[in-house]
Amino acid sequence: MSDGLYRRHALASFLEGETGNGPENTAADLEVRPDYGYLNLRGEPNSERFMQTVQKTLEQPLPAEAGAFTSGQHTIYRLGPDEWLVASELGTENETAGRLAENLAGQCYSLVDVTGGQIMMRLRGPRAREVLARGCTLDLHPRAFKAGRCAQTTLAKTSMLIALADDAPTFDIIVRRSFAEYAARWLRHSGASIHSRVTPVFTGAGGNPVR
């Protein structure tokens, strides 16, 4: 990139106003994570050829079950019967997309780079479940929603892709870009409602949402 070019995170203005004040008990930490490129992949799950090509190219299994994700070099979320979201380190998505397109040539599929269109936040802490449950109709009880599961569901007045990474619990929450500020405000408010603090912190390289 030439001089004068920089990336500005969707929550840059919002994070500037963050003071970190609030109740003292920490319910959960809210990390605003910037460093992903996203590819939306659609294709026929019953086509052995399609599944094999993708898995070989990504060197990672595609989640076979509904509502599951796989981790590795990429995190691959199954969004629907014929739709996956592939999250990779920012800057590598172009190359990944190129390889997929090359190997899938002639097959019926759709591959769309949606980088910049979604924001990932990581909510981690003992009361993370409570914080989320106040605005989510999905049953988040450990019995019903285990680590390795993901789902597209509601978060108060917006929607999210939610994935449970581990039993800390650590929830990865992906929202559409323009709803990120609302989601972050809502999560902070939900924490305050149970007298606990949810402080959004930017965890990107250099800690600066504008770089």
């Binding site: 910049g116 709803f179 809502w186």
Partner: peptide, 18 residues
């Protein structure tokens, strides 16, 4: 519920809002 004030409805801003 919480849907008052800044949480009344999502306010969507473009990347150029600032």
């Amino acid at each position: 519920g919480a849907a008052v004030g800044e949480l009344y409805d999502p306010v969507r801003k473009t990347a150029l809002h600032h």
